[in-house]
Design a protein around this nucleic acid. Sequence first.
DNA 1: CTATTTGCAAATGGTTTGCGTTAGC
DNA 2: GCTAACGCAAACCATTTGCAAATAG
Lengths: 155, 155
Amino acid sequence: MHDKQDDQFQQKLQIFRDTCEKAGIKMTHQRLEIFYELGRAKDHPSAEEIHKRLRAKMPTISLDTVYRTLATFERHGLINRVQILDDKARYESNSTPHHHLVCVECKSIQDLYCSAFDVLDIPPEANEWGEVQSKHVELRGLCKECLKRKQEQKA
Amino acid sequence: MHDKQDDQFQQKLQIFRDTCEKAGIKMTHQRLEIFYELGRAKDHPSAEEIHKRLRAKMPTISLDTVYRTLATFERHGLINRVQILDDKARYESNSTPHHHLVCVECKSIQDLYCSAFDVLDIPPEANEWGEVQSKHVELRGLCKECLKRKQEQKA
DNA sequence: CTATTTGCAAATGGTTTGCGTTAGC
DNA sequence: GCTAACGCAAACCATTTGCAAATAG
């Protein structure tokens, strides 16, 4: 009845409301729905994808509102923009440190938790360069589905 | 008289010629110049930037030729496309394994050589996901210049 | 000589913006 | 009620594409 996932989401929602309040961002129906949708999404949807998913519930929501809202959320650190391979930007609300598995074929992105990557020391050359704020490891390759499809094509 | 950098470049040029020959890619003036320019570049220029730099020597070269050529080179593994932060794609001809320092302020990209990152083991979850082909570590933050500028602004 | 590549101009696609209307606070 | 946010349409910018002329092999 009382699961961990839900608790986590409630906590995220509270942070969301607090952040908006502090920053003077109005709590609109659209913004809430976009936040819910991204929180629910297991993939890393693009603005267009989020728009498509929301139109079922909110037929009048416009694509540019989705763009504007995502930009606002990102500016306040509520979500992350992930720019990989593809030309279109994609988003995630996952705020815990993690890395990415990217399929070069179907462009799918999966989160990867790996403490070995998280604890990596920043090399001294980097400190000469400036101030490192975050670390992102990206592993590229072929996901299981694409691998399978390619093998079937050969046979 | 006989420096290492030049040797390296000659070797790269040979690989370039061989690859083109094998793939049936014609050796045009434009392609050579684009290859030279990217080989010479220390930063990670965009297609537009490369075009701008080349126009000094080749006033008639068109932007779409630069785009087409970069795509061709990338398809044959002669160069890498780097898609970071910014919406525009950027390119590098550096083929030795390396990582990136990215300034979130000015969008500059610097190469980082770090064997500790190169030898990282792929975690088992990744092998469940599919076949990992490459590994990229990206460190984001503020470069020295931007750090300095920000501090001056505050003062 | 023939197929590829180029330059031009027009199209495309993701994203942004100006503006009049709507809706939080 | 005042200001921020919305929806619409038009603009924007990086990149791509169709086509006729130029060029490498």
